[in-house]
């Protein structure tokens, strides 16, 4: 799958409290959560980000609380994928589990500015910066995680396993 969109750039250690503030954790619907995604960090993002846009962040993205509301709000916003130098581990697992594509690449983070137009091939991990013409390769996804994605997330994976 290819996703194309604008880069929304964020710094390091963006935590899940910032991605989805606590006061909205009494909500569960992804579109509702999406309205508040990253609002304290960049109020423009929740208002203007479009389907297919891409979040590009520095190291340790998604650190802090285990709230799945954070990746759910990003997915609900229609974000095509998240590229970061590194991810915090609970966020990393949860993103795969709910089918939010995430890619690790330090070089891409260095070579992409806010507002750049990107094209990402999720199958190969190739990240093209259409604004500068540069290309980057993300760390390949472990085969086991790819299986979860192919099954449509962890629940789909489990359902399949329970059947067999």
């Amino acid at each position: 799958m290819i996703c194309k969109g604008r880069a929304w750039k964020f710094g390091k250690d963006i935590n899940t409290d910032v991605i989805l503030p606590t006061k909205y954790m009494n909500l569960r619907e992804s579109k509702e959560l999406a309205k508040h995604c990253l609002e304290n960090q960049n109020p423009q993002f929740a208002k203007e980000a479009k389907e297919g846009d891409i979040i590009v962040a520095d190291k340790n993205f998604g650190c802090g609380s285990s709230r799945e509301h954070a990746p759910i709000s990003i997915k609900g916003k229609g974000i095509g994928c998240v590229i970061a130098r590194s991810f915090a581990r609970i966020f990393y697992r949860s993103a795969f589990n709910i089918g939010l594509p995430i890619l690790e690449s330090g070089a891409a983070v260095d070579g992409i500015e806010d507002g750049h137009e990107l094209e990402v091939d999720l199958a190969t991990g190739e990240i093209k910066n259409r604004t500068t013409g540069e290309s980057f390769n993300a760390t390949p996804i472990p085969a086991f995680m790819q299986e979860i994605i192919d099954d449509g997330g962890l629940m789909g994976h489990i359902k399949k396993k329970l059947k067999t």
Binding site: G64, S65, S66, R67, E68, P71, I90, F91, R93, S94, N97, I98, G153, L154, M155, I158, L162
Partner: peptide, 28 residues
Amino acid sequence: GDSHTCMYGAIGAFSTGVGSTDMAAAMI
């Protein structure tokens, strides 16, 4: 389903936080 689940390491258990989908899978 709480990031500070790692606290039970204080008594020598392996414990870690997960998101709700992992929690659901674990419960099943």
